[in-house]
Structure formats: structure tokens, C-alpha cells
Design a protein around this nucleic acid. Structure first.
Lengths: 224, 224
DNA sequence: CGCGGCTTTGATGTTCATCAAGTAAAGTGG
DNA sequence: CCACTTTACTTGATGAACATCAAAGCCGCG
């Protein structure tokens, strides 16, 4: 009867806005699914029939364009990964795939819509959560694209350092993916990483990154 | 008792989702306001207490950053100009000002929230409309920033041509604003416009623009 | 009239993309 | 397990796209 998603933000929306007897319905309609790294969770162009939420792990949101693949955002747990425009369209305009082995929660979109129709408190919370998620992605994107290459790279490194809560970590995306994330060529991304290494701000052996001088890295991030 | 916003999308949301007796409450709580060109409608950093909708005219959404002013989008009638993150935060993270003399409709945000809480159908429609508006802005932005300067300029010209439904029009923004919209320097924006003029694709005397060769302009827009 | 802001053009420098080449790592079939 | 292929990564050289600096013309406004 109790869901095991102890820290689940979506659950908290349901629980604080649903009567006790409705919670059970939520629990039973919810499906949990484990996905492996590199698995595609959402495919651009597919019909939107589910409401998907990342419980554990790390994912990337990306879209394929004539100019190549473009990473829109990296999704952490407690981000509603399918929030970006779930209700806007019939079909996904982006894909989502797992960067690490992850666990997702899946709800039928109909169920969520039903809740919105029946439960104002739920609707209100959902709108707020959706807006926050979209805002974060959008304004984050705007901020990033005001910076030059080196600043964006510094941002990426600081971002993952924040996620892993450590100055030493394995970056979960390839150089190519970094280039798709920052919107520049792979060669120049590598050059920027090399520059940071040569200047003694980071150590970088393949995917393993160590931040040596976080303050200077933050300054580069800030002042582009 | 009847609202005069005959074509108002917001009104249509209310009307199709409210019982007749509630419509009156909506009408009375709604305030219509005329604003002059260059008037600031929403100011970045201000508390969000109202729900604002563009009934007539043209506005720009922009934000001020340490690197200068950045235009996020141009808002036409039937765009919910305050939709972008109304519920996400306490304060606006962007400004809105009128490009032309415009008419806006203003609702107390409390009133809208109340409707969301009380009326599921209204909530559902609002979510859908918000998502669509945000999607359009966001993915439009992503598309634009994959293009080179000349393609973005072509896009801007085609955009306003679409708005005014004519190949001859006065562009409602300055060269500087175009540069803030496409995210490049004013000098290079001017050079790009000059190039289009020299190549015979457009005529351009100050703010007056005439599209001569729409097909080629579209090709430039499309293929960056 | 003259001041300040907007616009335009030219010259020059920086940032980034492209092309080319080579190394390392990782999967693939015999 | 090893040769083989493929994919990811790295560095250098060159060129294109864009920013910056400088100067001058235009235009509206006090």
C-alpha cells in the first residue's frame, strides 16, 4: 500500500494533494522501471502517452536536428524529465536517454490528466513544478549561450562536480556529448579542456576529472 | 456583462470551462489597459501578482544580464505574454515592453489560481496553453541559435513579414534590438542586412523593409 | 545650432569551425 | 587470443564567422 519512492517529489505532490483513499490508486497505477545506461527512455517523434519521472540516475534530454544532435539539458533525480511540454503536443519534440543505470517512474498520462481535472490542489502544484523545471532549463540555456567556449566548459565541469558532490569524478558523458551540450565542435571542446589542464585548473585523464582550483574555475565560468 | 474581447483566447478558456454565472466574475475582475509603444509592461525583478495577456499590439520579452539586454521573444496577440514562468517564481525573471501601441488584459493572479483550484477543466486548458507557449519560445530559440547570422536575420525579416501579412512593412524594432534578438553585434547585423540588400533579396531603407525574393530568403533561413 | 543616440562602413583581431592526421581505446570476427 | 575494424580522443594548421575598435553620417530634439 505504501509506495517505496520515499523521496519522490511527484509522490509528495500526490500525497499532499490527494485524499488518503486516492493515494492507493496512484500507487497502483504507477510503474517503476529500471533502465541501463545508454537506453533510450523517450524517443523524439513518439506519441506522448506517459508521464515519466526520474527517480534515480542521470539522463540527457536531446533533440535531433538537420544540423546534428543537440543536448538540451541533463536531468537529475527530482527533475520531471518528461515535463518539458508533456501537455503541449501529441508527440515528443525531444528524446531522453539514460547516462547511467537509472530508475524511472511511469504514470499513464490519462491518469495525471484525470487528477488535474478532479483535483485543483494537484493541478496547482503540477503547474508550479512544471514551470520551475522549464524555467531552470530555459534560463540555464540562455545563460550558457552568453558565454564563450571556455566558460561553458567550466560550467559543465562545475555542474557535474555539483551532482556528484565531489571535486573528483568520472564525467558521465563523452567529449562528443559535451560538444553537443555546449553547442560547439568536439575539437574545440577538447582544446578547452586541455587548456584548463595545462593551466593547472583541473586534472583530466579521459573521463576522470579532478578540480584543482575551483575558485579560478568559477571565475572563468562567471566571467565567460 | 459581455466582455468585448471577442477573439480573446484567454476568454475562450474561461468561457468553455466556466459555468455561466462564473463568467461574470471573470469579466468584472478583468482589467483592460492601453499601453503606448516603448511602455514597460512587466519589469524584471518585480513581484508577480498579475496574469497579463496581450490583446492587441506587439511586445518584446527581454532580460537584462551583465552582458547586456537580451530579447527572448517577440509576443503577438494571442500569446500569453506573462505565461513564461508565471507560477514558477515570486518575481519576474524577464521584462516585457510594448513595441507598438498595445492593449493588454490584466487579471489578478490570485483569481487565476483560484480558478485552477476550483475548476479542473480550466486548469487543464491553462496547462496546455502554457506549455504550448513556452514550447514555441524555447524550441524557436533553439532553432534560431543553430543558424548563422545571415539565417537569423532572414528569419527575423520573414517573422515580421508573417506578422504584418505583407512583403512590405516597417520593422518595429531597431537595429540594436535585432542584434539583441539574434544574439550578435549590431555592426554585424547591419552588415548582414546590407548584404541581403546588395544581393537584391530585400529593399531596406531604415525601418522600412521590402522583401523582393522571398524564395531565396526562405532558403537562406532554412539552410543557415 | 549642436548634442546625443542610432546607424553605417572599414580595418583589424579573436573565437571558433573545418580539414587533416595520428594515437589510444574498445569492440569484432577468425 | 590476436589481427582487424571501428570509435573516441587529441593536436596542429588554416580559414570563416563574428567581435571590437574607429570614424563618419544621419536624424531627432532641446
Amino acid at each position: 500500500m505504501t509506495c517505496d519512492c520515499e523521496l519522490c517529489e511527484l509522490k509528495s505532490i500526490f500525497f499532499t494533494s490527494l485524499e488518503a483513499d486516492k493515494v492507493e490508486a496512484y500507487c497502483s497505477s504507477r510503474a517503476q522501471r529500471d533502465v541501463n545506461a545508454k537506453d533510450v527512455i523517450i524517443r523524439q517523434g513518439e506519441a506522448i502517452t506517459e508521464f515519466i519521472y526520474l527517480k534515480e540516475g542521470l539522463v540527457k534530454l536531446y533533440r535531433d536536428t538537420p544540423q546534428g544532435s543537440q543536448i538540451i539539458a541533463i536531468g537529475k533525480p527530482f527533475d520531471f524529465v518528461s515535463l518539458l511540454s508533456v501537455f503541449a503536443d501529441e508527440r515528443y519534440s525531444y528524446s531522453v536517454s539514460a547516462l547511467e543505470d537509472s530508475t524511472i517512474c511511469v504514470l499513464k498520462l490519462d491518469q495525471v490528466k484525470k487528477q488535474v481535472l478532479e483535483n485543483g490542489k494537484f493541478a496547482m502544484k503540477l503547474i508550479t513544478t512544471m514551470n520551475r523545471a522549464t524555467d531552470k532549463i530555459f534560463f540555464g540555456y540562455l545563460d550558457n549561450h552568453q558565454k564563450r567556449l571556455i566558460g561553458r566548459i567550466a560550467g559543465v565541469i562545475l555542474f557535474f562536480s555539483e551532482i556528484y558532490q565531489s571535486d573528483v569524478f568520472d564525467i558521465p558523458i563523452s567529449r562528443k556529448e559535451i560538444s553537443q551540450l555546449v553547442g560547439m565542435t568536439i575539437e574545440n571542446v577538447i582544446r578547452a579542456i586541455s587548456d584548463l589542464r595545462k593551466d593547472g585548473l583541473i586534472r583530466a585523464y579521459g573521463k576522470n576529472i579532478e578540480i584543482i582550483d575551483k575558485e579560478r574555475l568559477k571565475k572563468i565560468f562567471q566571467y565567460s
